[in-house]
């Protein structure tokens, strides 16, 4: 019944949407050693599935879901982070419809859209590691947390997702209402990241 309603809405004459107001938009901070960028909105998905469904979901999503802890896979603007043995966090920065793609997979899974749940920051520059290390207790050296590594962890008093797309870039995601705290903390830490 609910599904039908959605379909009807899609076929109806579309009314102009209200504007989207992402948290902290335009609040970037740049320092000599580290730059903190509030990343633009992205499509986000929390994907849960048993091992038997991984191949089918990988085909549907167009990228191989990583199965090793702390790893990720990235393809065509779409990135899947391993978060747990049956849990992936997928984001698409190219505007792809993750929910629709998952719906193509017949294998058992749970796909929940969380595009608006999180706010993402890029912490980049040679001081990025020191900045994140102000609040994250994990070893973030390139040996322990190489390019492509991803994890759920903590940053001060907030839970975050941490992903390293490049040697000098960290992607930090947190829940929307924690974004002010995380951003303020990152700024405070970046101030000290000259060392």
């Amino acid at each position: 019944m609910a599904k039908a309603a959605v379909k009807k809405a899609a076929s109806a004459q579309a009314v102009a949407s209200v504007e989207r107001r992402p948290a902290l938009a335009g609040n970037d901070v740049s320092g000599p050693n580290v730059k903190i960028t509030v990343l633009p909105p992205a499509e986000r998905l929390s994907l849960r599935a048993p091992e038997a469904s991984v191949a089918s979901l990988s085909r549907a999503l167009g990228l191989t879901l990583p199965q090793k802890p702390k790893t990720s896979a990235s393809k065509n603007g779409r990135t899947a982070l391993w978060l747990g043995p049956d849990e992936w966090f997928i984001f698409d920065e190219a505007g792809g419809d993750l929910l629709a793609d998952c719906a193509k997979a017949k294998a058992m899974h749970s796909a929940v859209g969380v595009s608006h749940r999180n706010v993402a920051f890029a912490v980049s520059g040679p001081g990025g590691e020191a900045t994140v290390s102000a609040g994250c207790p994990q070893d973030l050296s390139l040996d322990a947390f190489p390019v492509g590594a991803s994890t759920r962890t903590v940053f001060g008093k907030s839970e975050i997702l941490l992903y390293r797309p490049a040697a000098y870039t960290f992607r930090v995601e947190c829940w929307r209402s924690f974004s002010d705290y995380v951003f303020t903390f990152l700024k405070d830490a970046a101030r000290d990241a000259a060392v």
Binding site: R48, S110, G113, V114, S115, H116, R117, W175
Partner: peptide, 8 residues
């Protein structure tokens, strides 16, 4: 499976 959508 359970997913928190409090802030979605």
């Amino acid at each position: 499976w359970l997913t928190s959508i409090s802030e979605q």
